[in-house]
Computed example of a mutant assay.
Amino acid sequence: MKLSDAISSFLAYILEERGLSLNTAESYKRDLEKFLEFRGDVEINEITLEDIDSFAEYLSIQKYSQNTRSRTFSALKSFCSFLEIEENAKLSISSDIQIPKKEIKLPEFLTIDEVTQLLDAPDTTTPKGLRDKSMLELLYATGIRVSELTNLKVQNILLDEKIVRVIGKGNKERIVPFNDYTEKYLTIYLYEVRPRLMRKRGEDRVFLNLRGGPISRISVWKILQEYALKAGINKRIYPHILRHTFATHMLKNGCDLRTLQVFLGHSSLITTQIYTHLDKDYLKKIHRTYHPRG
């Protein structure tokens, strides 16, 4: 089997058998295509551990970041393991593939004043502004991922109960509550604005673009940047900034890590713990409050 065919087989496997998301599969595809470009479309049984070591050196020379190299080698290790188990390839190298450690980068977040300015930036006298306002309020109120927002369906929003049913990574469902501000603007958007935007009968995505189709992740990013500029926020604005802001503010206001983990849809508490690094003064205060000799 050629390497390119093996990659296609692996991507089909993680989508159909393991139930991973399309976004995750695309990430695997990009990383494995780096190795395909490096090694060429050889027979998979020709791949050796020396090839893997040379590929590691190549990525380093090309100045890929530590996190990119870590992710790429994690994908490569999973791919080789799949070949050895599912395709009976005579590789026997997956257990020897070393995954470089990731750099721990603390996520940036907005202050209370900054997030207030951002949420107040849309012009709520216009349909676009009302849509954007409800979208930003929901992102900050729930901490959901942008991909979860763009895939959100109308039936997953329960306005009376002020909860949203989110389908996250690995098709795992979780329930996240939202506040009165969000309920107010979601109600206006769903009942007054969305019907005017909708062009296609039966479209069930919550957030639509101005042409009536589902809004994209890139569009959400551009909307965030637009309002950050309008609000005079001089920080790097990226798609997950409201998710990281939600997590940081929840933790700072007393939310415990286990509950925050559930809200964020993290499979591991280790992922959630990164937010404990963001506010050292707050952590010192908690330590002084609860430690017997604080």
Rank of each mutant, 00 (worst) to 15 (best):
S74D: 05
E37Y: 13
K222C: 01
S268L: 01
N253A: 02
S8P: 00
R258F: 11
H287E: 09
L83M: 12
K184T: 15
K285P: 00
Y64G: 00
L130C: 09
K63A: 14
L118D: 06
K77D: 11
F55T: 00
I7A: 02
K34Q: 14
Y64M: 08
F246P: 05
L106H: 09
S134G: 08
V42E: 06
S219G: 10
S268F: 05
A228Q: 09
K34L: 15
K102L: 05
F207G: 05
K252S: 14
T271K: 01
A247E: 05
P195S: 11
E203G: 08
Q273H: 00
R174F: 06
I223P: 00
T116R: 15
F73R: 04
S70I: 01
E17T: 04
E148L: 01
I97C: 07
V176P: 01
L59D: 09
H277V: 07
R69V: 08
S60Y: 12
L149H: 11
H287A: 11
N23D: 14
T142K: 02
S65D: 11
F178L: 04
M250K: 12
R217G: 10
P127E: 09
I144V: 10
A141L: 02
G265F: 04
A6D: 08
L152M: 13
I237G: 06
K235E: 10
N45V: 01
K105Y: 08
F55K: 02
K222R: 15
R71C: 10
V42P: 04
D53E: 13
S78D: 00
E203S: 12
Q261D: 05
I223Y: 07
Q225G: 14
Y64N: 14
I93C: 09
Y185N: 14
D123G: 02
F109P: 00
I270R: 12
T248I: 04
Y227G: 08
G254L: 03
I144G: 03
R174W: 05
I14D: 05
D204N: 13
I175M: 13
S70V: 03
L49M: 13
R205V: 05
I241Y: 04
V176W: 01
S9E: 15
E86N: 06
P214W: 08
R145M: 03
S95N: 14
K235W: 13
K90C: 06
L110V: 03
S70N: 06
L49C: 07
L264T: 07
I157K: 01
S219Y: 08
S27G: 10
R30S: 06
N234Y: 08
L11G: 11
K280W: 06
T72N: 04
G294T: 06
L197M: 12
R145D: 09
T142L: 02
D51S: 08
T276K: 06
L159W: 02
H277E: 10
Y191H: 15
G19M: 05
L278R: 04
Y227N: 11
K133V: 12
V193T: 13
Y290S: 03
Q66W: 02
N151Y: 04
F55L: 03
E57K: 10
K101L: 03
A6T: 02
T150C: 08
F178T: 03
R199G: 07
T245L: 02
S9R: 15
L138A: 07
G232A: 07
R211Y: 15
T125I: 03
R201E: 15
H244E: 08
R258C: 00
I85L: 12
N209I: 11
H249S: 06
